[in-house]
Design a protein around this nucleic acid. Sequence first.
DNA 1: ATCCAGGCTCCTG
DNA 2: CAGGAGCATGGA
Length: 295
Amino acid sequence: MKAEINLATPTDFSWPECYRFLSRSTQESTHKCQEGSIYKLFTSGKVAKITGHSQGRLTVEWTNGRPSTSEALEAVKFVTEWFDLERDLHPFYRIAHSDPLLNPLVQAYRGLRLIGVPDLFEALSWAIIGQQINLNFAFSLKKRLVERFGQSAQEGPVHIYRFPSPRRIASLTVEELLPMQFSRRKAEYLIGIARLIDQGRLSKEDMMRMEFAEAKQQLESIRGIGSWTANYVLMKSLGHTDAFPVKDVGLHNAVKKRLNWQRKPTLEELNSLAKAWVGWRGYATFFLWHSLLDH
DNA sequence: ATCCAGGCTCCTG
DNA sequence: CAGGAGCATGGA
């Protein structure tokens, strides 16, 4: 297996815009952005360097050892889901172009794709960590968890980490998470979900076979997962472009800012705006979130 | 100081 | 069954 793989990118793909989203926090702990490339640690313990190029091309390179066939396939699958490379965005752009709120965003961020969290446990954990608290605090909680319980590898001068496995988190007690400033509730949610996944009672494979409503219902039946978290995960990990976390504060702030309002929109107003986005409400939400990086 | 952050559960009346 | 307290902490 050669140590570099080329992937074709779709027409509507902007590496710089995706990179900008993935660089949004200096506290990010599960990948490293450096000089236009992104480094990611895979299960094998090998680090891949991902770089977008012009001419509709993206490369995945291994810097510390050649990948086996299965490792290469894992990486390709991951990158494809991470950048949503197989999505046909024409219907979304058609909707967005005739929408006063979305049109400026798709013009400005042309080629941005919904950056996912392909691993279901990581997506659920990240959503739970982010409940109620500001994003900076959420990033530092995640960083503590990752640096304490995740695998790591050395890549030049920097350590790079993987999000901890469900098995590792399932083995913890609530008391071990409290000193890291998790609330008791969040620690319980996290460990509970890790156990469900470790026991095989919750899996991405199963969830991917379900219709939206069924998947949402299963998620919401789990302690710690409400409608915001369910929709977040459906959108970021399970590929549902219409999942709509309507209670999201970031979404509220983005809409307020884009419309130049003095107040945040009500849920009724949001649902009303979003009627025009049906089928793509998750994508619309993601573009609105991205707009908060401006200014 | 008070309120709010990419919410949710649980308790109260 | 609607409404509200509590959660952990940092920043405005």
